[in-house]
């Protein structure tokens, strides 16, 4: 026993204070790069190129953003910022909604129907977990060329919407639906569509929201796939466009515009994660287990 020099309460308070200290340090490290790029986007090229960069926003912010949206990105990247944001939004939404649609349909078929090869279909979908794009780059590219899907939205979206994890999650969830519910619905004369629309869909909404957040981020942050299947600047996602901007980097690179583009590439997915945090955390912890 210590001789009461510090009461348990005071010790706990001190521990909490240290905890706050470490968390603030952690948050600074974690959030700093994002904050820093935002700061850089509000300064002129000259200021950015002369280190160290001020830690507070500069006065060029309005100019930089207005310029970026009204033609300056076209000049350096060959494609407008609007188009890049539009492409990326379309791809991210297409992938997220596409995954939800086809994996819900598959899980519905596997759980609520009985047919030959039912489990074989399930395993066929499940095993795709072990075949990420990264391990079959070249042959997949060849398939895309043969099907004429290079530089198309279909090519950017379709191959990425197969989802073993989403199918697994929906299957797991559908299996928790009590038999009595289905029996009752069938007694009332409900067919598969009515049962899905009136009973299953409303019950699935939280799961759908959770999967949507995870897959929207997945779609927005794609890199290798768009790199493989796009050649034209018009079809670039904002991430690929940024990479192109900095790889031609020389003394004339308009770093202020690169910074504006970075901020716009980071902001939408961060907003989705932060605003839909509750579903995001649930989705993350449940889909990955």
């Amino acid at each position: 026993m210590d001789n009461g020099a510090t009461s348990p309460l005071a010790a706990r308070g001190a521990a909490r204070l240290t905890a706050h200290f470490w968390m603030i340090l952690g948050v600074i490290i974690v959030a700093f790069p994002v904050y820093y790029v935002f700061i850089a986007s509000t300064h002129s090229v000259q200021t950015i190129l002369r280190p160290p960069l001020p830690l507070l926003p500069g006065s060029e912010g309005y100019e930089n953003y207005r310029g970026a949206f009204s033609g300056e990105i076209d000049r350096i990247g060959g494609v407008s910022l609007w188009r890049l944001l539009g492409n990326t939004t379309l791809i991210a939404m297409g992938i997220a909604l596409g995954k939800i649609a086809i994996s819900m349909a598959s899980a519905y078929a596997i759980v609520f129907f009985k047919f030959p090869l039912r489990m074989a279909c399930f395993w066929l979908i499940f095993i795709t977990l072990m075949l990420p794009v990264e391990v079959r780059i070249q042959p997949t590219y060849k398939v895309m060329v043969d099907l004429g899907l290079i530089d198309t939205y279909a090519g950017l979206i379709l191959p990425l919407i197969a989802s073993a994890t989403a199918t697994l999650l929906f299957r797991q969830f559908f299996m928790t639906i009590p038999d009595e519910l289905l029996e009752a619905a069938r007694v009332d004369g409900a067919g598969p569509w009515r049962f899905f629309k009136d009973i299953l869909w409303p019950l699935s909404l939280t799961n759908v929201a959770a999967i949507f957040v995870i897959q929207f981020i997945y779609g927005w942050t794609q890199y290798l796939w768009p790199l493989l299947v796009t050649n034209s600047n018009e079809m670039n996602t904002i991430v690929i466009a940024l990479k192109k901007m900095i790889s031609f980097a020389d003394a004339d690179t308009p770093w202020n515009l690169v910074m504006v583009t970075s901020v716009l590439a980071i902001l939408p997915p961060i907003l989705v994660v932060v605003l839909m945090q509750r579903w995001f955390v649930k989705g993350l912890v449940e889909t990955e287990k």
């Binding site: 974690v30 959030a31 790069p33 994002v34 942050t221 900095i246 590439a265 980071i266 997915p269």
Partner: peptide
């Protein structure tokens, strides 16, 4: 927690560029 989850939403390529 809200501040800790930011990097999850950043594309790996952009994390590298930052």
């Amino acid at each position: 927690r809200t501040l800790m989850i930011w990097p999850y939403a950043v594309a790996p390529a952009i994390a590298g560029m930052l």
